[in-house]
């Protein structure tokens, strides 16, 4: 059976700690661009935690919202790419083929979530920081777009593993780096085609919404809205 990878993000659990952000950097060989380039808008964070204030002091509230590639079914980034570097994989991943990318950056404009990041320069790791690089993840050269892959290298490895062990993938066995690190388990990853999977069940939660749903990109990431506290005794 084909997989359909998806994620549920529980905004009631997310604390904005950004463990996911660093985990993603560590797993996916995302370069650190340095202060000068960061000031010029070149920082790369495949996953970011958006923070929005509501109200004014002292009646102020905050919303945290992790935003990563939504792996949309109708991803606006895909069709605009003239070289098919961005396309939908069989597992429903929004795949980015670095080798085919010529750097029009059109996908980055078309993506309403702004989760695509561009290699403005060749990445550098000052020795010996390069020793940390994950050998399972290719390094992107200058002029190439990159983005969250749902840790496709882990997906591939897991497929090889279950094939060699002749078994099915267990729900929760496979996690991208962000979900694995997330202390509050706000990020849940899995196969949406498996109705029993945790992510499939959460995706049908009444709290579930899609980010910018009206724009019709049909994302595979579901956001579970923060709940308000109510007094159980009052009911």
């Amino acid at each position: 059976m084909a997989y359909r990878w998806g994620m549920a993000v529980d905004l009631d659990r997310c604390t904005g700690c950004e463990a996911c952000v660093t985990a993603c950097h560590a797993e996916n060989n995302i370069p650190t661009v340095g202060a000068g380039q960061a000031a010029r808008g070149r920082a790369m964070h495949w996953i970011r935690v958006e923070r929005y204030y509501e109200g004014d002091f002292p009646d102020v509230r905050v919303k945290f919202r992790p935003v990563l590639c939504q792996h949309c079914d109708a991803a606006p980034c895909e069709a605009v790419c003239p070289t098919y570097a961005s396309h939908q994989s069989e597992d429903g991943l929004n795949a980015q083929v670095y080798n085919r990318c010529i750097g029009t950056r059109y996908c980055g404009n078309a993506c309403m979530y702004n989760v695509r990041f561009f290699n403005f320069f060749n990445p550098e790791w000052e020795k010996p920081l390069n020793l940390q690089l994950n050998p399972d993840v290719s390094i992107r050269s200058v002029g190439v777009m990159e983005k969250c892959t749902f840790c496709v290298q882990r997906i591939k490895a897991a497929k090889v593993l279950i094939k060699s062990e002749n078994r099915d993938l267990k729900d929760g066995e496979l996690q991208p780096a962000c979900a694995q690190a997330c202390p509050t388990t706000a990020l849940v990853f899995g196969d949406l085609n498996d109705p029993e999977s945790r992510v499939a069940r959460l995706s049908h939660s009444p709290r579930g919404t899609k980010l910018l749903e009206d724009l019709g990109a049909e994302p595979k990431v579901t956001y579970l809205q923060k709940q308000a506290w109510y007094e159980p005794d009052a009911h």
């Binding site: 380039q37 920082a43 790369m44 950056r105 980055g108 404009n109 561009f118 320069f121 060749n122």
Partner: peptide, 15 residues
């Protein structure tokens, strides 16, 4: 030679 980064384009203004 140096990379397109010498231009001012950036995230999210890619053009």
């Amino acid at each position: 030679w140096n990379g397109i980064g010498v231009a001012g384009i950036r995230w999210p203004v890619f053009w």
